[in-house]
Amino acid sequence: MVADGRPRPGDPLDPDAAISVRGLVKRYGDRTAVDGLDLDIRRGEIFALLGPNGAGKTTTVEVLEGYRRRDGGEVRVLGVDPARGGRRWKAELGIVLQSGAGDSQLSVRELLEARASYYADPRDPGEVLELVGLTERAGARGRTLSGGQRRRLDVALGIVGRPRLLFLDEPTTGFDPEARRQFWALIRSLRDLGTTMLLTTHYLDEAEALADRVGVLARGQLAEVAVPTALGGRGSAPAVVSWTEDGARRTAETATPTAFVRDLAARFPGEVPDLAVSRPTLEDVYLKMIGGPDE
């Protein structure tokens, strides 16, 4: 897996990485939530962290954001230890928490203007509203927004400071399919502006659509890191060819589906009945990797 840029335990921290983690451990009482995590995230990369509830996603992200103390290991975020990050460091980050940005009597625009004033070089609040599609609701109070609009406001608050690194913790939970597509377009435009992003999500299609690499967390450890199309050996996994012959459904696993189908085609005078060729989906390999449903 060296080709995927995944560090091995004991490697030195990578000074050029946006995020560099070695041997991260976090415990809650006698439960170990994160158990020796090694990870480098390159500058400009979108990295998706997948995993079932309780796998340690939010814990990991909140250690990187400086919200939680770690119990072991070394962490650098934009070259700084999050446990010692000051104002200047925080000004380089954008954080979209799973829990959102709270309730307020202020309007969407006022919230963004207030947030912008904490930063050295903020984005124009009007442009940010445009970017997240909330221009029409600029005058609305935060509490009158729909669930999806609130989440877009959270994202707007996360990016108004012009962060170099953006954390997105389950940003599209509660979005309808169209809102998710719009959100994906927003993430891609932020990537084009050079923003590094660490995304946690439950949606595998979201990780596949957005991420340069995905990491699967299971039981506090990274089960694998890979580009989405190669996760779990997906790219080279045997394909499953299925068809109907003599009135029965037949299936075969093959590493060379093209040759297999060519041979198959020769056995039939016309179309091969009910022919289908499939590779394991991201969901198949993911479920296999995390070992079934939550412990």
């Binding site: 400086g66 954080i95 928490l97 940005a101 709270g102 904490y118 400071g161």
Partner: peptide, 13 residues
């Protein structure tokens, strides 16, 4: 409701 946590993640002193 998360307002404080959100503020703590910004450079606001």
């Amino acid at each position: 409701d998360g307002t404080l946590k959100s503020l703590a993640g910004t450079p606001m002193p």
